[in-house]
C-alpha cells in the first residue's frame, strides 16, 4: 500500500481575522480580543502545539492541555459575544478530542497512521498465531478438550509466555516509533511540505504491521482472560 505523506504546516505568522494585527498566539488576538476561527490545517497534534510524532512527552502534553483549556474554555467566554462563544466551543471541542487521542500511545499511534494516510484495515491479513507462541497455545487447546486441571496449569504457563512475548513486541514497537520520529525530525519542514518521503513510508508500513500484531495480541489476551475466568 502506498501512502501520501502529508506534511503538516508549521505555524506560520498570521494576522488577526478581525482587526488584522499580527498574532502572537495562534488563536487569540491580543489587540482586539477576538478568538481566531480554526484553520482547516489544524490537527490533533498542531492544536496542542506539537509536531506530529509517535512519542510525546505526556507530562508536557497535559501541561499544554491545561494551559489551552484555561485560555479557551467556553467558561471563559460566558459573557462574551456569540461569535467568540462559538469559536471557543469549537476550539475546546477539538482540544478535548486531541487530548483524548494523544494521551494514550495506542490511540496516538492509530491517529498518527490515519493522519499520514495509512489505514490499518486496508491490508489486514488473516492473523495467525505468532510461531513463538504456537506450541504452548495448541497444547493448551488440547488440554482444554481433555482435562480442566491440566488446562488450568497450561493456561498459567501460556499467560507467562504471552506476557513475555508482548513485552518484547512492545520494545520492538517503541523502537520503530523512535525510528519514524527520528526520520520525521530529519525532514526539512519547508521542503517536505506536500511531498512524500519514501523512507518514512517504508517505516510506517513496518509500524502498521506491528500495530496489527498488537491488535491480534490484544484479542488473544482477552480470550485468555475469559478462559481464566472459566477455569481458575
Amino acid at each position: 500500500m502506498r501512502s501520501g505523506l502529508v506534511a503538516v504546516d508549521q505555524a506560520s505568522p498570521r494576522n488577526c481575522n478581525s482587526c488584522g494585527t499580527a498574532l502572537a498566539t495562534g488563536f487569540l488576538c491580543t489587540h482586539c480580543g477576538r478568538l481566531q476561527p480554526l484553520g482547516s490545517e489544524e490537527n490533533y497534534f498542531s492544536v496542542l502545539g506539537f509536531a506530529p510524532r509517535l512519542q510525546l512527552d505526556t507530562v508536557l502534553l497535559e501541561k499544554r492541555f491545561y494551559e489551552l483549556s484555561r485560555a479557551l474554555h467556553p467558561d471563559r467566554f460566558t459573557t462574551s459575544d456569540a461569535e467568540n462563544r462559538r469559536i471557543s466551543t469549537e476550539r475546546m471541542t477539538l482540544i478535548n478530542d486531541a487530548y483524548r487521542n494523544l494521551k494514550t500511545s495506542a490511540l496516538r499511534r492509530s491517529y498518527f497512521l490515519k493522519l499520514f494516510g495509512f489505514h490499518s484495515a486496508a491490508n489486514q491479513k488473516n492473523p495467525r498465531i505468532p510461531v513463538e507462541l504456537a506450541e504452548t497455545w495448541f497444547e493448551l487447546q488440547d488440554a482444554l478438550a481433555e482435562s480442566p486441571t491440566e488446562a488450568a496449569s497450561k493456561l498459567r504457563g501460556f499467560e507467562v509466555e504471552l506476557g513475555e512475548f508482548r513485552a518484547r513486541k512492545l520494545q520492538a514497537l517503541l523502537a520503530i516509533e523512535a525510528e519514524v520520529d527520528a526520520a520525521l525530525d530529519k525532514l526539512d519542514p519547508a521542503q517536505s511540505a506536500g511531498t512524500r518521503s519514501d523512507a518514512i513510508a517504508v517505516l510506517a508500513e513496518k509500524l502498521l504491521a506491528e500495530v496489527q500484531g498488537e491488535t491480534y495480541l490484544d484479542s488473544m489476551t482477552q480470550n485468555m482472560e475469559h478462559m481464566k475466568k472459566l477455569l481458575l
Binding site: T25, L28, T30, C32, G33, R34, L35, E67, R70, A71, R76, F77, T78, T79, S80, D81, N84
Partner: peptide, 12 residues
C-alpha cells in the same frame, strides 16, 4: 503560559 484574555468582561 499566561495569556491576556479579552472579550469576556462581565456585561453588567
Amino acid at each position: 503560559m499566561s495569556l491576556p484574555i479579552f472579550g469576556s468582561q462581565p456585561t453588567d
